[in-house]
Design a protein around this nucleic acid. Structure first.
Ligand code: MN
Ligand code: MN
Ligand code: MN
Ligand code: MN
Lengths: 230, 230
DNA sequence: CGAAGAAATTAGCTGTAACTAATACCCGTG
DNA sequence: CACGGGTATTAGTTACAGCTAATTTCTTCG
């Protein structure tokens, strides 16, 4: 029952488009503009590539550019997510690179590492279930648990939570988060929210710090069960 | 004294052309046809690419296609050799892949691994000086020792030698060599050469085997000092 | 010397994936 | 209902790196 990993290798661009579609898509379709922004290409480039992906039955095209992954497209996208996260784990755990810094390397390598090498890396890392930023790693069949997480900034005053995932695309911000102790597994408590200016005070690992709302968007937490405000 | 690792990233194709030029070049210039054969592309493609490389001052063009690396081209080529060999070492030593099988993966990864990742891999492998096939690894400044090796098939009857390098491009043949004990470090003795049909008998690690000349071209040995035919 | 054959080059195309500029389409507001 | 702003598409280019077919240029040999 070896799953049918078809032999056709998608181009690097296609793989990146699919991955971003999966990430932005959640469920609903995705707009040309959002893809363009996230991929760093022009809108016409996106229109164009989407047409090709549609022809290859990897995305379904709705009206006015709205695009949605097909089952086949989703499979490819998740495969890329798996590769990306395994590689990040490897870069941190085995090569000892910095947490905040491995995303860019993984973004390239995910397209060029053979299945054989990927499996060897996965084995060497002990078949990790999470990457260094707390993101879950899909299994070989593309199964991916879903977690109900909320943005750190959405906690109400007094609420406790555990940091679960850190968005990994901006090395700069990650360095700051790490230094503040906002890493997967950290326990936090929202101390105060100033509605007026969107600034709040967060307690993490004993000490506290203050931050503007957008400065922590990208940190996802799992709220503690209500009522254990010991 | 950080050496001037210029920022220019050469395309994958260029890097491969330079590497092959270095390998075939030795000293003298290289013909269009030999490049085409080795790279698996057509002759016009080579003419064309050589013109670009010449424009970029990476090769010097002599008459009728003869091409030769410039100092800058040589630097780039050796850098690729270093990357290739470090990666092969890593694939075998750390990931446990098969000796005979890592060339293709290294051929791809050499173009896509960042300097940072390469250095981390090199460190993890303990700054190896030879790859798994016995090829010397250039140091970070492009220095590469030179060894005086001869083809296994050129030994005279009775002569002893130590296997030093195994050509790594044909997995098929490598598997056979490995199985026969022809690996770097193995001690061999030429037992008999039949001039008539180019077949000879070789002793390696006690047992002996017989082979046609071309079947072992790609195995390079270091002849023992004359006269210790104990 | 002259022609054959080998080697290299030129000419013209292809596919991929970008880009900019121009245009078309939609939707909400006046 | 018409118009303006935002969104998407079309049209036309570009760079890269390959290809085949045709041609040119060398070398060698009769
Ligand atoms: Mn990528
Ligand atoms: Mn990650
Ligand atoms: Mn290569
Ligand atoms: Mn090698």
């Amino acid at each position: 029952m070896v799953s049918a990993r078809a032999s056709r290798a998608l181009s690097r661009s296609r793989q990146d488009y699919l991955k971003v579609l999966h990430d932005l898509g959640g469920e609903g379709p995705v707009t040309v503009t959002s893809l363009a922004r996230r991929l760093g290409v022009s809108a016409p480039s996106v229109t164009n590539m989407l047409a090709r992906l549609a022809e290859e039955k990897l995305v379904r095209l709705h009206h006015r550019g709205a695009a949605q992954l097909t089952a086949a497209g989703t499979r490819e996208a998740i495969e890329m997510v798996r590769r990306h996260r395994i590689l990040e784990t490897f870069l941190v755990q085995v090569l000892g690179l910095d947490w905040a810094d491995v995303h860019a390397d993984a973004e390239v390598l995910e397209h060029h590492v053979s299945d054989r090498v990927l499996e060897a890396i996965d084995r060497l890392c002990g078949h990790p279930s999470e990457d260094p930023h707390g993101h879950l790693i899909p299994d070989r069949d593309g199964r991916l648990e879903r977690r109900a997480l909320v943005p750190l900034a959405s906690l109400r005053p007094g609420q406790r939570a555990v940091v679960r995932e850190i968005r990994d695309r901006e090395a700069r911000r990650m360095a700051r988060w790490k230094q503040a102790g906002l890493v997967p597994g950290a326990e936090v408590r929202m101390r105060d929210v100033r509605e007026s200016d969107g600034v709040f005070e967060i307690e993490v690992g004993g000490s506290a710090f203050v931050s503007a709302g957008e400065a922590v968007d990208g940190v996802l937490v799992q709220p503690a069960r209500e009522g254990n405000d010991s």
